[in-house]
Amino acid sequence: MEAVLAIAIGILVASGVWLLLRPRTFQVIIGLALLSYGVNLFIFAMGRPRTGAPPVLDKAGIVDTSLYADPVPQALVLTAIVISFATTALFLVVMIALRGLTGTDHVDGKEPDR
């Protein structure tokens, strides 16, 4: 499972980075989305996630903290999800505005001279 998750992170990041280096705005925005999945999972993986570890405390009191899931990376990722939503939205609007302003969807705002 660890290997599968690691490979998944790798593939998400690789796809994201590849798209990041492409010339069209839509490719970059898709790339950012993929990259943020990869990075979120990576941060999450730092807490050594397991199957079946309770994330919510029992009100009776704590027996053994090591049985519970690590909440710190989860809190970080929760924040990251919301912020990456905001970034995507902002980028999308810049993309639309750029297209309206320059008439092209190339990231440099002009078609490359070939």
């Binding site: 996630p49 199957t51 899931a69």
Partner: peptide, 8 residues
């Protein structure tokens, strides 16, 4: 979900 993070 699988890895015990329902909030996420």
């Amino acid at each position: 979900v699988w890895l015990s993070a329902p909030d996420l």
